[in-house]
């Protein structure tokens, strides 16, 4: 394609505007979270302070920030682990033909397409009929997995479609057992992708709102806590919380990406 001329620059400008559109609002609340003590939810800035961050850690100011953060983190870690294991396992299964493979594939895709409100309602009904109290570590965990697993399985599909099967044949020819070829050939090669699947699982769960709202039972996760705050918070403490949790998410994303790149480099050197 032509890489110069007004059309090229117009397209690049459009792209730049899109990035501003994507990041602008979030950056704004990050700035506003440093509002001075008398500042409000909008510009202008009335001084600069850390007051609203300090506010977060005073227990009575915002509901149950510590508790909801702990719950969200634990839930996200469990979802991450399960997503990696189940997606990897299913990805290995889908490399061969087996009875029901097509049904399972379409079930996985449906999980992506069925509106989240239906998952919430269905799980709520099921727990109701079984007379079990919904909670963040049972019903919400299941609800989150219906969202993270399709992404995990589709990533594994893509990974194994591009996997060079001659490597495994070579391992087998050299006398490796199926377990050995998985452990020493396949896993090291797909490790960066598995890290990616884990990252997806963690982030999608940590920030999930729609599927948690009606399945979390009596204890709030962090996104629910933030949502509850939006209805009654009139101070930038809301922005401070948003800033902290966004930075936390971004920190995880960057950290994990660096880890995956390092692993990929090591795999290449080995």
């Amino acid at each position: 394609m032509e890489k110069s001329g007004p059309r090229h620059w117009a397209l690049l400008a459009f792209f730049g505007l899109f990035v501003i559109f994507l990041y602008g609002p979030t950056s704004t609340i990050m700035i506003l979270s440093f509002q001075g003590p008398d500042g409000g939810l909008t510009f202008p800035m009335r001084g600069v302070s850390m007051r609203w961050f300090a506010n977060l850690f005073e227990a009575q100011m915002v509901g149950d920030f510590g508790g909801s953060l702990t719950r969200s983190l634990s839930l996200a870690l469990v979802v991450m682990g399960l997503t990696v294991l189940i997606s990897l396992s299913a990805g290995l299964a889908f490399r061969r033909k087996f009875f029901g493979a097509t049904v399972l594939f379409y079930l996985t895709i449906s999980s992506l397409i069925v509106p989240s409100i239906l998952i919430s309602l269905g799980i709520g009904l099921m727990f109701n009929e079984a007379d079990i109290q919904p909670s963040w570590y049972t019903s919400a965990l299941g609800a989150h997995l219906t969202w993270t697993l399709p992404f995990g399985v589709l990533i594994m599909f893509a990974v194994f479609n591009r996997f060079d099967h001659r490597l495994e044949e070579a391992a087998r020819d050299l006398g490796a057992s199926p377990w050995q070829s998985l452990r020493f050939v396949v896993l090291p090669l797909i490790a960066p992708s598995l890290v990616g699947v884990g990252l997806f699982g963690f982030s999608l769960s940590y920030d999930e709102f729609a599927r948690t709202l009606l399945t979390a039972g009596s204890d709030n996760t962090l996104p629910l806590e933030i949502f509850a705050m939006t209805t009654n918070a009139t101070t930038p403490v809301l922005y401070a919380l948003g800033t902290l949790t966004t930075l936390f998410s971004l920190g995880i994303v960057v950290g994990v990406t660096v880890l995956a790149l390092a692993m990929r480099r090591r795999a290449r050197v080995a």
């Binding site: 396992s89 290995l92 299964a93 889908f94 999980s111 998952i119 269905g122 099921m126 609800a143 219906t146």
Partner: peptide
């Protein structure tokens, strides 16, 4: 039987938290 064992966890999760709930609805 390997593929069946490997796909079992996915089956279980999707059955309990997707298929049964939708049927319940």
């Amino acid at each position: 039987i390997m593929p069946y064992l490997q796909s079992l966890p996915l089956w279980i999760v999707l059955a309990i938290f997707l298929a049964i709930p939708i049927c319940m609805i």
